[in-house]
Simulated scan of single mutants.
Amino acid sequence: MRLRRLGKLGDMGLATEHAPNVWELSARLEPTLREMGERGDIIRTMQKALRAEGAERDPMSFQIHGTAPATPIIGRVIDKHLTDELGENLTLVVDGIDGRTHHVSGFDAVRVEDARIGSVVEIGPADSTGRPSDRAIAGMAEDGIYRPSRHLEQARFEGRVPNGDYEGFVDAHVRRLEALRRAGIAERIDADQWRIPSDFEARATAYDAARNARANIRVLSTFDLERQIGSDGATWLDRRLVGAGASDLSASGFGEQVREAMERRREALIDRGDAVRQADGRTAYRRNLIATLQEREVARIGEEMAARKSLPFRAAADGETITGKFTGTVQLSSGKFAIVEKSHEFSLVPWRPVIDRQLGREVSGIVQAGSVSWQLGRQRGLAV
């Protein structure tokens, strides 16, 4: 049995017979077999998740990502489970529109809270773009020296800081430099002088990338395809219909399901008068389709909530400054919305992660083109 096992290891390149009955084991024997065992466990997990969805996929189409994927993955979450005993890291199994099934590990459990089974997500490379604050610091540096007092003068001269909080704006940049000082990237000379290296921006970006090596995840829709087809809101399918179309969809697997769902959604929009089929077979969609559908859904949900809350709902207009207490969120097919309440009314405005820590507090923001530019006071300076 041992000889037969050695023969098998030899076929795998993990053992070499130098002479009859004289074998040398590879130094990579144990880690290689361990990795193969782990891979086998992962493949069984992926197959189990697919069977629960009533689907079968060729294991050759499975992709196991040990790190953040180099190119974005779009697909449906079919499994979500913890991968460590502390409950800090999550693994997702995603049935991709590319016809492959992806296994991606190492997500922060808090960041993927909204990525439920059935949600459509986009998983991309770790964020490696530079911060606006780093560009501002580098731009203000003279002969390799950054002076907060000089930055404060410039900020006051330009006058573009929200709420006129110039000191808080510059303080935020100094706090960034303190973090980079601990990483050995910047040097504090005195209270008003910092030594900035010539490659400051590149090193600061590399520092952030090393600390945030986890893959980025964006929830495109918490609604499954069937709910999107019949929704009165702006769905992920709508955004594909008026944007990317079906060019990147596989002819099999989830890609094929999305293609079919898009066709059914197109017919639903035509039936409702939001689109028309032209003589050449192409479809023309209502002007500003996404904004119109979003407004329609927000108005309906707002009125339903008003009946339960005994508080009038008021839609926020584009360009309006919205203020009030942030009391919670609601998930619509058009996306996630924040509930902002005043004593006599409430509004629903597009949610952004930056306000999560403000739950139960007064917030203020400007509604612009389907989003909100939140102004959260001194602790969040402009461009930080």
Rank of each mutant, 00 (worst) to 15 (best):
A155E: 12
S364Y: 02
E187W: 06
E201N: 08
M36E: 14
A206K: 14
A246E: 15
V330H: 15
D127N: 15
V77Y: 10
V219N: 09
T327S: 15
D108W: 15
I97K: 08
R286G: 00
R266F: 11
E153Y: 07
G324S: 00
G10L: 02
Y146K: 05
Q375S: 03
D84H: 05
V170I: 11
D114I: 05
D190P: 09
A49N: 15
A307H: 06
R378P: 07
P20Y: 12
A206V: 12
P132V: 02
A279K: 03
R147M: 06
L311G: 06
R264G: 11
I339C: 09
E158P: 00
G66A: 04
L9R: 05
K325A: 04
H102Q: 04
E178P: 04
L82H: 09
Q228S: 02
I217S: 02
R195V: 08
K309H: 07
R150L: 15
S247C: 13
L225D: 00
D98W: 02
S347H: 04
G319S: 00
F313G: 04
E345Y: 13
D199N: 14
R195F: 10
S149W: 02
A115G: 06
V367I: 12
A315Y: 08
E362W: 03
L293N: 10
G243Y: 10
E158G: 10
G99L: 03
T83G: 10
E295T: 06
P148G: 07
G365T: 08
T323D: 10
G324F: 01
S334I: 10
R5E: 15
T101F: 01
A284Q: 15
V340Q: 04
Q375K: 05
S310N: 12
G319C: 09
W236E: 09
I301L: 05
Q47S: 12
S334P: 01
D238L: 11
V276I: 14
R240T: 05
D127G: 10
P148T: 13
M36Y: 10
K48R: 13
E153S: 13
R182Q: 15
I366Q: 08
S347V: 02
K325M: 08
T101P: 05
S371E: 14
D58S: 03
I43K: 09
E226Q: 15
H102P: 13
I78E: 04
E24P: 12
S343N: 04
G54I: 07
F200L: 02
T321C: 00
E113Q: 08
R195C: 07
V104N: 14
L86R: 11
R264H: 14
V384I: 12
F223W: 11
P72C: 00
A299I: 00
N21F: 15
L29I: 03
L348T: 05
S333Y: 01
A179D: 11
Q257V: 06
N163Q: 14
M60T: 07
L311T: 07
R4W: 06
D84T: 11
R116K: 14
K8H: 03
V372Y: 01
Q278D: 09
G37E: 15
I366N: 13
E178D: 10
V363A: 08
A244T: 09
L50V: 14
V93M: 08
P20T: 13
R181V: 02
E187C: 01
R5Y: 15
S343G: 09
Q331F: 00
S149C: 00
L152Q: 06
V161Y: 05
G233V: 09
D274C: 03
L3F: 11
